[in-house]
Design a binder for these strands. Structure first.
Lengths: 125, 125, 125, 125
DNA sequence: GTGGTCTAGACCACT
DNA sequence: GTGGTCTAGACCACC
């Protein structure tokens, strides 16, 4: 579990944890029934409050990504992967949508935005 | 000045104002030396606190987009458009970057992301 | 806001708050757009931690019963009452179901259970 | 001994065991002096910790439903059935009471609640 | 050991 | 003033 926290960031710590575990589940690093690190151990590893970790785990459970068994631990839930992928796709689409709309609002042309997207993709992949 | 606020949104009100005035300046609706509405009148129009409008105007001035003349009002500053465009481009690039990286993290291929971007651009333009 | 907490109870404090505010909204005591007491004031009134109150408010928002506006407060949301009533009906039905099934398991007849229900209703109303 | 455990449930495992053995005694499946399965065999059957089974058996003994003979096993005690029935009746009455009170709190009429109870009884019997 | 709840107080962002 | 986040430590119930 190589989770990285940057407390300087403006995004809350618990959200950073949620995001990273989400990604680990989606890309297959964490598989169904795998155990997540215990609230206490992760909080100790990351040197943050146990409550903060628990809040992140609560979010994951709420979204149906994990199941928590009292006294035992937290485990990756049965994925229902098609539904999940749809959700994440929607999430990314929304981000792209706001970016492009903002670009249009600022007077950028469609061609300019396409080019920007290509350049960024070159950088990411 | 057709500024629209949606208090239900998660983005802070003052930021919504900043964004929209920024766009009006960049796309030429507001030109150099044009007067912005007074803090009081805008706050009355939008039915929000004058302090919130003031905060937005402070931001704009801080970024060099406007100048405030004590006792007179707030005016659009000399654009220095090349620098501004660069800034906004960087802002959009960052948004695209996080979106694409998240997509990659979730296991999407470069081709899938390119296609998504195209579809969204079709929608926006 | 006459909310009563009994810390001796085994049901968590935040859940007690959720239940009571739910009821106040459903029976019309709290109407759309009414403001809930602020997290701090309620926590002070009830002599409990502000975090506990916040947790309760988070639940209410999650269920769509309230909307929270940063820096302003928490308000009763647009009810969509038909959906809500259905949900609460289901909740009560489930409780009755477990009670009656347990009675059957213990060897009670349908008539005995009906009579018990009548007696309790006499007591409640 | 057809005891079924569902770890997904929110009710603790030991309580599920207690409930089911209680019912078996009350409805006569388990009679006075009948032996309960040993802690070890039951824990092996249900694939749970022996400590959990022990906790359930301790509860049963505490309530006077069973007696444990050191080195021999656990046996159904002398029922004292009238007292037991009363207890279970009280338990069910309390569940009904909370259900009906909640219904009243949510604005349901006595008639509506009576009807709900009838429908559920139709379903159970 | 595990998760579940709660506290008292802190700091920050928004209005 | 408001809500949003975080801490360090406590106590409990469950396995």
């Amino acid at each position: 579990m190589k989770i990285m926290i940057q407390s300087s960031s403006m995004v809350p710590i618990y959200e950073q944890i949620v995001e990273q575990i989400k990604a680990l589940i989606l890309n297959g690093t964490l598989k169904e029934n795998d155990a997540l690190p215990s609230v206490r151990s992760l909080s100790k590893d990351l040197r943050i409050s146990a409550l903060t970790v628990k809040k992140a785990y609560d979010f994951l459970e709420e979204e149906g990504l994990t199941v928590t068994v009292h006294g035992k631990g937290t485990y990756v839930a049965h994925p229902d992967s098609s539904r999940l992928l749809e959700e994440y796709q929607k999430e990314i689409e929304e981000t792209l949508d706001t970016a492009f709309r903002k670009g249009k609002q600022y007077g950028l042309s469609r061609e300019e935005l396409t080019e920007m997207a290509e350049l960024i993709l070159d950088d990411v992949f």
